[in-house]
Design a protein around this nucleic acid. Structure first.
Lengths: 188, 188, 188, 188
DNA sequence: CATGAATGAGAATTCATTCAT
DNA sequence: GATGAATGAATTCTCATTCAT
């Protein structure tokens, strides 16, 4: 792993543990085991590091979606819950970073466009794959499903962030509702 | 309005406009039209102000739910979309504050228990009222519905925060899905 | 003397002793006997302090010129040297600050306009008074004289800055040249 | 051009463009196309580089004077203006570096003696040549002329640095005054 | 009660200098 | 000789908190 990667890794770890605003560049340096100045050899500003973390999170989500697609159709009614559950587990880390940053992104003109673009890209990426797999379903229906699912996923992640890792039995029920809701709306 | 309340109101306005971390105690004082020192006569620390803001947000959500209940059953399948829409509008402000703060609350041991407690209280509060109105529905089903709805509401709020006030026609469709999903799961 | 004035005085002292770039805000604070943070209560940035120092220097030059005018005409051929000498002594401090800053002002877009404006103002100020005293001399001649004198004065100040307080006997000769040159060019 | 010379040339370019304090050793290395470390193989410190730049500037002035002497006597009353003008153009670069550095040189004990010595050497150098060409004029008169001229040249250079390349028609008039002043004082 | 001046620790960032390769 | 990664002290600026008046 290169120095540059080590620094990003350290930054990600700190941000995850202490949050975006409570992570100083010194913290990152200490975590990476390097001097403060070295951070700036590889990254122009702290904001650049955060940008990269955001982009990485989006890329990670895209990859996870691609992987899961190879095995399952995320909208398939018969999907075993466990598989969706594991997808959410893997995605949680990335989504939680996006959430941490979203309060800032909403107001800081430096992150705002990046943030919106990342979301659009992610949405298009998911839509493309769904469209290929369901040529018979109208675009409007597909987009609605995506929207609906993303609401639920965001909601799930927020809930986890807020409450920690409780409420697993509830999650089971939700998973069923999730699937049912999607399929119920399939042939209106 | 007392001095103490004015300060909280100023704090809420600042936090909403500039975010939690970008609001200084001096900002609040200026907005409230009082001196910096006075803030500390009424509130021990900045953290205490934030705690109160969180509690207020939760109280506000409870009130909104009580009001809406007087007119409508939030889970009624026949509910006109506009009414649910307006509930979300009113609740948005409180939920968005909770979101802004949630990144912090997850890690800061000073907010964390407060946060969890508030959520539990809110959940129980909603459950009580639903149970009174639907004595025929099992507790488990009711709780699942609540959970499901809260996920959707959180998701909607996040989406609004992230994207601003776009996508209204999509919101229409979502509203239908929202209702359909809830009712579809009602009589399995 | 107000705190604000004390800080400017401390800043002026530091800048004079150690130069513009070698004076840190901490230096100024220590010299003024206050904390670092207090500097920023009264002045937005270090650059603002420097701007004020520049403006003060120009104002000081204007005042010195006004004072000297009450007693003498700076271009009068019969002027005793001592009086011009003392004018230069008094002006030196202000001019030396302007010189210190001029290397920066040439390139820093934040000081550049301020600097040019100050110079224009000073030039106009001097011209006005000369024109009143010499209604018979053409504007062109007056302006040329001023230009010529300012070159000499700048040259004198630079020389002092470079060499310290040496070469007094030479200064005598120069003073005569100065006067002769001006008067020689008076009636061509 | 040796590596060592390339570095000095790069240093001069950077200092000229960005000023003395805003030029970092890294800047110089980049401009010279070498590594940071190499700078320190040839020069002990950044201060040493600046010393050399000062010495070079003085040498350059000496050379310019020697060249101009071959064609013209700088104090000759009949000298066409254009020739003096071009001398000032050529000398400007060196003089402006000396000015940039002078604020520092005044206070930094490391530059100060160097600076004074360089000036003395330059002055003697000019005096020698003038004395050879004007055996009839007394030493005192020659020295006074030199002093007077140097004041004017310094003044001209400062003015250019401050105002850029404006005021050419004024410069014409000044040139005449310059010559007149010198010659007027020649036979008192 | 109320003020707002004052504090000082801490944040982001820069840069002269060193040193292992 | 040559590289450029690495260091860490210094700089500008912010802000929660205190306290004399």
């Amino acid at each position: 792993m290169t120095r540059k990667e080590e620094i990003i890794r350290a930054a990600r770890k700190c941000m995850r543990e202490k949050g975006f605003h409570n992570t100083s560049v010194q913290n990152i340096a200490r975590e990476a085991g390097v001097s403060t100045g070295l951070i700036y050899r590889y990254y122009k500003t702290k904001a650049e590091i955060i940008e990269i973390l955001i982009i990485d999170a989006v890329d990670n989500l895209k990859e996870l979606l691609n992987e899961s697609q190879n095995k399952i159709d995320i909208f398939s009614p018969g999907l075993v819950f466990a598989e969706k559950r594991s997808f959410i587990d893997d995605a949680q880390e990335s989504i939680s970073l996006l959430l941490d940053v979203s309060a800032e992104a909403r107001r800081n003109p430096c992150y705002q466009p990046l943030f919106t673009a990342a979301y659009e890209e992610l949405k298009d990426n998911i839509y493309q794959r769904e469209a290929e797999q369901h040529p018979d379903i109208s675009e409007s229906t597909l987009r609605t499903r995506l929207y609906f699912s993303s609401l639920l996923i965001d909601g799930l992640v927020i809930r986890r962030l807020r409450l920690g890792e409780q409420s697993n039995n509830e999650a089971d029920k939700i998973a069923m509702l999730f699937l049912n809701a999607i399929t119920a709306s399939q042939n209106p």
